[in-house]
């Protein structure tokens, strides 16, 4: 696994690049906040893109949602720069993904992607073993958008119940119930797959 593959990281650049950034602080101030935002994008794009892909299971849609999230961060960059812009971007991303999931559930004709599609997009051998667990992959795709968001935030971003509740704008009890239902559905799906497999 890559070093920055984990979802939950600080939005600041690593220590090495930070010293370099401090050395060019006067240049950045002269050019405005664009460079600082660019650093933020460089540091967080990979993590947030993975989160987006796990949330919507569609690479192109994930990129679009990520761009919208970065646009909203850029609009509020002056206020967010002192806080945690990555948490804000993740919150925007999750809510966009949930809205998109609801929209797609209303329109059944829209295609739904998968993490396995990434192999096909990347031009890999389709007969090669899938990157993820196929059963879990299907089970996650079958979950409702909000339950899937809770699972992703909990097991990929390692967020606690309170942080998930803040990110989704719901109560902790709702987070617990969503988690319990999602885990029940995933367990049943995996058990069914093992039985049939």
């Amino acid at each position: 696994m890559l070093r920055d593959a984990a979802c939950r990281r600080t939005g600041r650049p690593p220590a090495g690049s930070r010293s370099a950034a401090l050395s060019t602080l006067s240049t950045q101030e002269a050019r405005g906040t664009a460079d600082t935002f660019e650093e933020f994008v460089n540091a967080t794009a990979g993590r947030l893109l993975r989160t987006a892909v796990f949330l919507v299971y569609d690479r192109h849609l994930a990129e679009d949602l990520l761009q919208v999230a970065y646009e909203r961060v850029a609009k509020r960059w002056r206020r967010l720069a002192d806080g945690d812009p990555e948490a804000y971007a993740r919150r925007v991303l999750v809510n966009l993904a949930i809205d998109e999931g609801k929209r797609r559930s209303r329109r059944r004709d829209l295609p739904a992607g998968s993490v396995a599609d990434l192999d096909r997009i990347a031009g890999r051998d389709p007969h090669q073993a899938p990157t993820g667990d196929g059963e879990l992959d299907e089970a996650l795709r079958a979950l409702p958008a909000q339950q899937r968001a809770v699972v992703v935030l909990r097991y990929w971003c390692d967020l606690g119940e309170r942080e998930i509740a803040d990110a989704l704008g719901i109560s902790r009890g709702t987070v617990k119930s969503h988690t319990a239902r999602a885990m029940t559905a995933l367990r049943a799906h995996v058990r069914e797959g093992r039985t049939h497999g």
Binding site: A5, G46, L49, V53, R59, L118, G132, D133, L186
Partner: peptide
């Protein structure tokens, strides 16, 4: 299993 699944899938998702 979920953590392992996400970790393995994340390796191939690069911007």
């Amino acid at each position: 299993a979920l953590r392992d699944h996400f970790g393995r899938a994340a390796d191939d998702i690069q911007p």
